[in-house]
Amino acid sequence: MRQAKEPFQFMAASTLTRICGVQVTTIAELLEQLRRISADSVFNHTFQSLSVHHYLTEGFSNDFAQWVLAASNVPDLAERLAALDIRQYETLEALRGDLVATLEEFLRAEPQRAYQKAFEPFYFCEAVTVTVPTEWRAHNLGEFCEALRHISVHTLHYHFVTARLRGPSTNDFSAWLEHSLELAELADRIEHIDIYTNTLEGVRQRILEESRRWLEA
């Protein structure tokens, strides 16, 4: 079996939620605070929120969209906020920029909805993440599959969803498969797995299926 130039070290990422002490009750206030809050707060309500709701495949994308839908009852704006695909962003500032632009565009078209009171407030929080190495290291594709079967969904989320924020222009698995195992095609197939129409368990199974096919070929 082909050996990797560098082993893949699976990391466990655990997150604590810090309360910012900022709450909003209208879409105008949401926009104002989105411009100011910390990057850790943007992360918490988008990337982290998707990790916490990893078992859902329908109707959940990020906390902002969920609040706009469930508490403010503005489905058209909720749809637009939900449509932002977090895996397209390499920085949280770029994601913040698009969230802000979506809200600005909506309020330009529908200014009368800016100060409509939501049924319940939106509370801003920040994610504080601690990472520790797991016992799982892979030196080849077989070991990679074995480890993938055992890691938690949060480790999967860390490597598959938030990786771009740390540098590579793809997920950690695809980057390793391409550069350390020279399996560019497999890397590409894994990169194209949809995180919004799969649960994270579903994503795990899809990666395993793709990898197994490669092992058996």
Partner: peptide, 15 residues
């Protein structure tokens, strides 16, 4: 909750 979650907690505790 699965062995992976338990092992992650033990890793955190070791620190």
């Amino acid at each position: 909750i699965g062995a992976a979650e338990i092992e992650e907690m033990r890793s955190l505790a070791r620190r």
